[in-house]
Amino acid sequence: MSHNILELYSGIGGMHCAWNESGLQGKIVAAVDINTVANEVYRHNFPDTKLLTKNIQKLSPQDIKRWKIDTILMSPPCQPFTRNGKYLDDNDPRTNSFLYIIEILDQLDNIDYILMENVKGFESSTVRNLFIDKLKECNFIYQEFLLCPSSFGVPNSRLRYYCTARRKTLTWPFKRKDEIITQLPKDYGLPFSLQTIIEDDVHEKYLLPDKKLKHGNVLDICHRTSKRSCCFTKAYTHYSEGTGSVYTDKSPEMVQKCYEKANLSEVGSDDYVESMKELKLRYFTPKEVLMLMSFPQSYSFPTNTSLKQCYRLLGNSVNVKVISELLKILFEE
């Protein structure tokens, strides 16, 4: 069976990539996002897809029915459910478009399948309760997940909330649970090492500047044989802590020795910085981050997309591998 898909909050097309990766039959009939920079990147990679730069609240139920859509894939704004977003939940105006989709769902009797992604924390929100209540009201059976790419053989941490839903009129072999599932039964093996995604001859513009090396004590450092990396956020390169890992070609032993030497000096001092420079720490390139988020090798950014824009867009995107596996479950016959 072939499906017609509406991709809401389409961003740079992570859901589109996941659909292609899943091997399922169907077509992204339309993608919608209000971010013009993200849309340029989306159009660069998917030039044949109907892409609308508009507020989702401008979409009418009639529009969605006219496109003969049976599936919605979406990743609504996560800021209302994060610490930095002050946990404003349904009081945050950035939830308005998703609340609108929830509101009109009972009019969308053409929709049989839904996959929604959001940040960890969404599961305890008021908006989540409204969403789940609406799914029940509209005769959907659903399953909630909290999953990390590291459980799928990907060396990256990006714990996220997912919800899959399909009409009860459709037989679903998947055995749902009332509780949130945190691990899929399939064994995806251990994460691969970073050496498979590391680029050679990386430009020196990716080297950490001295002002960042001053905060070497909070950096998460990865090397070629690492099988892990931290979650990359849209603030990557802007803040030193909690926004993503940095990379060195040096061995773990060399990293340890440099830290021991640096720690003989006061953190942030000139001597400390000079010791840290020996590691030649650099940021992961956008291409490397794309690989860690399981985007296909063929995916690329337009040449006019700035480095800052690349990182911001990636920080707001999704892990393709996790979603492709959930799509296989959602459409299981």
Rank of each mutant, 00 (worst) to 15 (best):
E103P: 01
E103A: 07
I104F: 03
I104M: 07
I104E: 06
I104P: 08
I104Y: 04
I104W: 03
L105V: 02
L105R: 00
L105C: 06
L105I: 04
D106Y: 12
D106E: 15
Q107V: 06
L108T: 03
L108N: 14
D109I: 14
D109C: 13
D109N: 15
D109F: 09
N110Y: 15
N110T: 15
N110D: 15
N110V: 15
N110I: 15
I111V: 14
I111P: 01
I111D: 02
D112Q: 14
D112M: 12
D112V: 07
D112L: 13
Y113M: 07
I114R: 04
I114L: 14
I114T: 01
I114M: 10
I114F: 07
I114W: 01
L115T: 04
L115F: 04
L115V: 05
L115R: 00
M116D: 01
M116Q: 09
E117L: 05
E117D: 08
E117V: 02
E117C: 07
E117N: 10
N118S: 07
V119I: 08
V119H: 02
K120Q: 06
K120A: 08
K120E: 06
K120N: 03
G121V: 13
F122S: 01
F122R: 04
F122L: 08
F122N: 02
F122G: 02
F122Y: 14
E123K: 07
E123W: 00
S124A: 08
S124Y: 09
S124F: 07
S124C: 03
S124I: 12
S125F: 08
S125M: 05
S125I: 02
S125Q: 06
T126H: 14
T126F: 08
T126I: 13
V127A: 10
R128C: 12
R128D: 04
R128N: 12
R128I: 00
N129L: 15
N129Y: 11
N129E: 15
N129R: 15
L130E: 09
F131A: 07
F131C: 12
I132Q: 12
I132E: 13
D133A: 14
D133P: 03
K134E: 12
L135D: 01
L135E: 00
L135S: 04
K136R: 06
K136M: 06
E137G: 00
E137W: 01
E137Y: 07
C138F: 00
C138W: 01
N139E: 13
N139K: 13
F140S: 00
F140G: 01
F140P: 01
I141Y: 03
I141A: 09
I141K: 10
Y142H: 13
Q143W: 00
Q143T: 02
E144K: 05
F145P: 04
F145D: 02
F145K: 12
F145E: 10
F145R: 10
L146R: 05
L146S: 10
L146K: 06
L146C: 07
L146E: 08
L147H: 12
C148R: 07
C148G: 06
C148Y: 03
P149Q: 06
S150W: 09
S150Y: 11
S150H: 11
S150G: 00
S150M: 10
S150I: 13
S150V: 12
S150N: 11
S151F: 08
S151L: 11
F152E: 08
F152Q: 09
F152K: 10
F152G: 09
F152H: 09
G153M: 09
